[in-house]
């Protein structure tokens, strides 16, 4: 019975690979007893790898398993992940080819969620690899090894996150780029100054309107619900002076004033 359970688990593992033909030989070496349960077809190394297996041609419903989850990938070795990446890459290429052909023939592409499943699995592999990479870099160098991000001021004078990338020449040699940051460059030009003035004015107006709106709303709330929980009101509208709002004309209802 125990054997049956184990073989079922193995089968289940194999079914998770979306295409039986591409299953990597993970379990084959470790468990020779269950060798027969693992289906390992030799890849045919042909352009026909870009197409689905012949039995699925013209089908309207192709059932597949789910994608790989993060927890399943975290317990795999780097080389297994590397192999699985190429399995998924080929699978995705195959699905793209079939989708394109279906579109060309104005047919429905059967089970398009297969592409999402493969893509999700690939994203998960990337996440796991990135986790390992960051852990390794932190241990060895004390940095994350991620792409560095810098806070810069862009040409319009606005703060921006700049993801650093490779350039052919260093910054100071790039005369065209440097020119706009000179004293009389684009960043300090009248046009950008005017833009910043108008931009700030706009931002100020947005803030002012929000302030007035909240104050008015609090007054109306006080008018309708004079016995309201004042602390809750203060928590909801921290910027509003509630004592001032209570004394206004708008906050007075058709009853004897409470405050």
């Amino acid at each position: 019975m125990n054997t049956a359970v184990v073989s079922n688990i193995l089968k289940y593992t194999v079914n998770r690979c979306l295409r039986a033909q591409n299953v990597i030989k993970i379990a084959a070496a470790s468990a020779p007893v269950f060798k027969r349960d693992v289906h390992t077809t030799k890849p045919n190394n042909d352009l026909m790898e870009f197409f689905d297996v012949k039995k699925n041609w013209g089908e309207t419903n192709i059932r597949v398993g789910r994608g790989w989850r993060l927890d399943e990938l975290r317990i795999k070795s780097n080389s297994d992940l590397h192999k699985l990446w190429y399995v998924l890459l080929k699978e995705r290429n195959m699905l793209y080819t079939m989708e394109h052909e279906c579109k060309r023939q104005t047919r429905l592409f059967p089970n398009p969620e297969r592409i999402d499943k493969v893509q999700e699995s690939m994203d998960n592999i990337e996440t796991v690899i990135r986790e390992r990479n960051v852990a390794y870099y932190k241990l060895e160098t004390g940095e994350t090894g991620e792409r560095p991000v810098e806070d810069v001021v862009n040409l319009f004078g606005l703060p921006e996150k700049y993801e650093k990338k490779e350039h052919f020449i260093p910054k100071f040699m790039n005369t065209r780029w440097v020119k706009s940051y000179y004293e009389h460059g684009f960043v300090n030009s009248a046009a950008v100054k005017k833009f910043m003035r108008l931009y700030k004015e706009k931002q100020y107006n947005v803030e002012r309107k929000a302030r007035n709106r909240d104050f008015n709303h609090v007054q109306h709330l006080l008018k309708r619900f004079p016995n309201m929980d004042m602390e809750a009101l203060k928590a909801e509208y921290p910027d509003v002076d509630i004592e001032k709002a209570k004394r206004t004309k708008k906050a007075r209802g058709h009853f004897m004033p409470k405050y």
Partner: peptide, 12 residues
Amino acid sequence: VFLPNFWMKIVQ
């Protein structure tokens, strides 16, 4: 390239 994310598809 460690994990290429390029895609290719055959077209008619």
